[in-house]
């Protein structure tokens, strides 16, 4: 009882508990797949579990090789990162420009409305092979796929952001003498940016998806390519290692976005903030 009180979950040892869950998952995985550790109860022989699900220790060994002994994953990670960042940047810029344009010219928006809806509802991953034909198997085709995914998220958010500019703030800026350009720069853009940032986590994730799926469908470098290669050789351990690296990478990207968001959006009220005077 005394011991339980010591380790009872509380805000202070939250991280430890989160770590414990991770260790538990990998421990279970290890116990269930390690050949010869426990008698097989689903598969016919003791090697099959390892064949289908991989072994955590081997997977960690592979990740270690990639990062330390062979140190050959960095070029692949770099390629995937470049693709993600380019897709994100270009997609966001295009979405911002088109969103502002259509939101500020209702006639153009009315004309293009059905086409935008159609383009958005189309399963755009299917475009990947076409992009490969157009742009080759290099970085460009992956970036193109990522851009089509990111563009619509940002576009719709900017469109919404401009539509929902407070009419009072707008009227006030006009009374203060803002020209149409200044309105765009000082009212519409900041308002739209807040919407873009609220969708940033989603759009970075989608840029990443675009990059990896593109690599997976045909490439000569990148983490998606590594996974594809391993899959071809039924090397489940390398596939799992690749997935682990991708997951960690995605988490790191998300954290980076969170940082940027915090810096740029400090004007937004946060719930529970007791700084008011």
């Amino acid at each position: 009882m005394k011991f339980w009180n010591l380790i009872k979950p509380r805000p202070g040892n939250l991280r430890l508990w989160q770590l414990a869950v991770l260790v538990l998952v990998f421990g279970l995985w290890h116990v269930l797949t390690k050949p010869g550790l426990i008698p097989p109860f689903v598969f016919e022989n003791e090697r099959q579990a390892a064949f289908f699900f991989g072994e955590p220790l081997v997977i960690f060994g592979r990740v270690g090789d990639w990062f330390f002994s062979n140190a050959d994953i960095y070029q692949h990670l770099w390629v995937t990162l470049v693709e993600t960042v380019l897709a994100f940047g270009i997609g966001t810029a295009l979405g911002l420009v088109f969103g502002l344009w259509l939101a500020l010219s209702p006639m153009a928006a009315a004309i293009l409305d059905p086409y935008i809806k159609a383009a958005n509802s189309m399963p755009r991953v299917i475009l990947a092979p076409i992009f490969a034909v157009w742009f080759g198997l290099g970085i460009a085709s992956k970036v193109a796929l990522g851009v089509t995914l990111v563009f619509f998220i940002v576009f719709f958010n900017v469109y919404q952001g401009v539509k929902e500019v407070s009419p009072v703030v707008l009227a006030n800026a006009r009374m203060l003498g803002a020209s149409p350009r200044q309105l765009l720069r000082h009212v519409y853009l900041p308002s739209a940016t807040s919407w873009v940032f609220s969708s940033l986590h989603t759009s970075v994730g989608l840029a990443f998806v675009g990059a990896v799926v593109g690599e997976y469908l045909g490439s000569s470098r990148g983490v998606g390519y590594l996974i594809l290669q391993a899959e071809g050789a039924f090397d489940i351990n390398t596939v799992m290692a690749g997935i682990l690296v991708l997951t960690a990478f995605a988490l790191a990207l998300d954290a980076a976005v969170g940082r940027i968001e915090q810096r740029l959006m400090k004007w937004q009220p946060k719930s529970g903030e007791t700084e008011k005077l």
């Binding site: 703030v169 000082h186 900041p190 308002s191 807040s194």
Partner: peptide, 17 residues
């Protein structure tokens, strides 16, 4: 716009950013 007038609105009119 009446350039010689200043307008104080009833609702919140400050730019939150």
């Amino acid at each position: 716009i009446n350039a010689r007038a200043g307008y104080m609105f009833q609702a919140e009119s400050l730019m939150p950013w």
